[in-house]
Amino acid sequence: MLATAPMSNRARILLSIAIASLAAYLYLGISVRELFPRGNGIQIVQQFAAAALGPEANTQNILMALLVTVKYAVAAITLAFALALPLSVIASSSFWSGCGITCHVLRWVVRSFIALMRSVHELLWAVLLLSAMGLSPISAVIAIAIPYAGTLAKVFSDIIDESSLKAENALNSIGASRWQKFFFGRLPQAIPDILSYAFYRFECALRSSAILGFFGFPTLGYYIKLEFDNLNYAKVWAYLYVLLAMVVVVEYYSMQLRRRFVA
């Protein structure tokens, strides 16, 4: 199917990528020579690499950091999910089928709103909320939840629109109303995919939550920055290993779950 895509387009795109990359490289004024660290850089690499084999753990701190990271991620993804579900219904085209121009305007407004939510990175939301309100756990949660709600809403609405028409047609033939067709014919089919995608975004939320630590929230990132700045490389590695393990374990779990969930 894709093997028959027109060669000319493909070649043109590959060429454009090459030209754009070269132009970007020249614009940045960087050189490949800078990739070989000198002086201080080499020392840091050596010390940091040497510390990899002997991570030094303060179990209590690590456990606390891990718990806070998970807590923010759970709160953020549940809030995002609650916001995204109604938004996605309004943003889907199947919800409005057979409705006039006003509905399309409304749908377009909601879609743009969703696009705005996810165009701003969670860390930028965090900076904005920190400046406007000050440091508080709820600002970290909201900072993650806003762009995640945007992404979830967009993908959910696509899932809803792409689900099969069979059940809806069957309901149609026994005289179901437009709302009944949507809520009992279309939406239930989309639920497994919706939940599976939400779980995948939970993985991402864990990473975002860890990174928010760089802004003073007590998640894993906070300790990574703190210990690195104090040159405690052995401790940095302990937190890095925990972060890595968390990501890999949740990814594996999510893979197993999806295998059982989405037929």
Partner: peptide, 25 residues
């Protein structure tokens, strides 16, 4: 591939910054 993608970009960039200094690299 798993190891490469497991560490978030932000943390990677933070570590690399100490090595390469404040260039775009």
């Amino acid at each position: 591939c798993i190891v490469l993608r497991a560490i978030p970009e932000y943390v990677l960039a933070f570590l690399l910054l100490a090595i390469f200094g404040a260039t775009a690299w």
